[in-house]
Design a binder for these strands. Structure first.
Lengths: 347, 347
DNA sequence: CTGTTAGCGCATTCAG
DNA sequence: CTGAATGCGCTAACAG
């Protein structure tokens, strides 16, 4: 009953299947599959290979990944799960990942609701796609347990990930310590900390590391001078505005912020309330976003190499997918303190 | 030979199929499919439905979207193709899209290389996923022609999209006009323009609209004072630094920038070269990124409502997917000039 | 209402 | 080297 197998002219409107290519080239679908997947070496004759290639070109055939995935039991998708894409950090990370994955895997992003881990249903839908691997930014323990299946997975920026979950992290301890040491070196003796309200592990570590380093370096951190706000700049600004009187009274001369965005809010609020930075208050950030060189004053911050994270994570994931055991389950990338004007460093 | 069909205890390690659920519940796979897809109303008895639901729960079954997509000929994926995710704009847009798509479709992002349209191979891989629909940011004509297949598609921020491609755009004409009018009202008579080197239609329209509005309002735009740089802040800063002498000589007193990022670069370079903004040079941006309230001085810019774009685009796409013809093929969202200190407006 | 059946497009044995 | 046959997991007719 199949009256459509007369391959006279390539009909671009109709979906081209491997079977069509096969008849067009006068071979079987098996041969087409071999050629289309570059597995023809030593398994298909030169002549047939050439024929198939030509048919593919003429018909405009491309492998249907749905069919392919079903047959193989797994897709060639790598899914990056991240909450807050709008961070310039991610653009660089993605570039790094893409470079490593190349043509072999297809990278797609799954964005979760602001700052939240994906819901159970979302996770199932993700798994339903049968991805070759997952890259997950700052996964919650809940997310990881919900996942359950033995899927190649690398956690990013997840210093709290359990032992059995490979992860690529920044050395935030070092970064936070560097900030504290820098402030101490500038002569500060009482400092404050503006934390983020979202409780990801990396942010918790930043705070804890800073506080412990500060103590170690002989700096006081008055309890009233440790506060927090959401990652919205406006919120950070408001927090500064409402707390400044108390902070000032507590005698702090420097404020370390959990992220650059927080610091921007502080700089803005300081400017409008007439607080001079760094004379009245030194301010530091964390992340070293591009804007930090353009803010007024320019912001002292901790630079994290997003591109490297992407590269390392993608390489590790590929190993996992290939079944090669990872030599290092936990990778740690160094961070670098960028001293700028907001802390009274070099302009 | 199948000795694995003894469903005594739920084995979480093994992939759960609809067939397993069926045997477990004592029904057929068809019934399972109906229930799992919420199409059981009036087609499955209460008793069987309950049984199936219980089996699904016990076994932890979820629909395999690969198999489902293959059977239906289309997946429930909506793919957003965008080049530059790191723009805070996208986070809001995505939130809007997600809200409209709800549980019915799964949104994934495909990030293309910085500022570039996806390659032909990438497009094929995208199509290979058989997405239910595509949302494409600033597609090039090449992209659209390469696509060819009659897939539900909405272009975003694509004022140049051909008639037959539905799109959701901002009224950049109005925005650019507002900028020009504002500068004219501030008394500027000679102004410059810093364009982006990436040639997307929206950027081209911003420039053209600004230049024509400026002319109409009696402002001169010396040819030497129209320049361009990449969207990297540092590049914009460098462009300012090398051009300022010439610009100054040309007599311009204001510089309109194609994007806020460009403007940040200009503000930074102006600050380091001792050019006072807005006294020596008024500066305006376009996009109104969050940082524009925190820059020094705060940046006059054109606000675009990203969330609305997301909502409108997703709604239109759903209509397309459902086969409902669109009433309006081209949607245009208004933009709003935010006057701030960089143009000598209110602080 | 419910079960049976026939593909969806492809990769992979397994005989030739 | 090559092709026919099988099944991946599911949905949509189609019979009961």
């Amino acid at each position: 009953m199949n009256n459509a197998d007369s391959p006279n002219e390539p009909r671009p409107a109709r979906k081209v299947t491997a079977a069509m290519v096969a008849t067009h080239a006068g071979v079987s679908t098996a041969t087409v599959s071999l050629v289309a997947n570059g597995k023809s070496a030593g398994r298909v004759s030169k002549r047939n290979e050439e024929r198939v290639r030509e048919a593919i070109r003429e018909l405009g055939y491309y492998v249907d990944s749905i069919g392919s995935s079903l047959a193989r039991g797994v897709s060639s998708l790598v899914i990056l799960v991240a909450p807050d894409i709008s961070n310039p950090f991610f653009a660089k990370l993605i570039a790094g990942v893409r470079g490593v994955l190349g043509e072999d895997y297809q990278l797609l992003l799954s964005v979760t609701d602001a700052g939240l881990s994906p819901s159970a249903t979302e996770i199932r839908r993700l798994l339903g796609l049968r991805p070759a691997g997952l890259l997950v930014h700052a996964p919650t323990p809940l997310f990881l347990s919900e996942l359950s299946s033995p899927l190649p997975l690398i956690a990013l920026d997840a210093p709290d990930a359990p032992e059995n979950i490979p992860s690529v992290n920044f050395d935030v301890l070092q970064g936070a310590h560097d900030v504290a040491a820098h402030l101490a070196a500038q002569g500060h003796r009482k400092v404050g900390y503006l934390d983020a309200t979202t409780g990801t592990a990396t942010l918790r570590m930043r705070r804890e590391a800073f506080l412990s380093a500060a103590a170690q370096l002989g700096m006081q951190v008055p309890a009233v001078a440790v506060s927090s706000s959401t990652i919205e700049m406006g919120d950070a600004a408001a927090t500064f505005a409402t707390h400044w009187d108390v902070w000032k009274e507590s005698g702090i001369t420097a404020l370390a912020c959990a992220t650059d965005t927080h610091a921007y809010g502080v700089l803005q609020a300081a400017s409008t309330t007439g607080v001079r930075v760094p004379q009245d208050l030194a301010v530091t950030g964390f992340d070293d976003l591009p804007f930090s060189t353009a803010s007024h004053p320019s912001l002292t911050s901790v630079r994290l190499d997003a591109h490297s994270v992407g590269v390392q994570a993608a390489q590790a994931l590929r190993q996992l997918i290939d079944g090669t055991p990872l030599k290092e389950s936990k990778l740690q990338l160094s961070s670098q303190l960028m001293v700028r004007a907001s802390s009274g460093g070099t302009q």
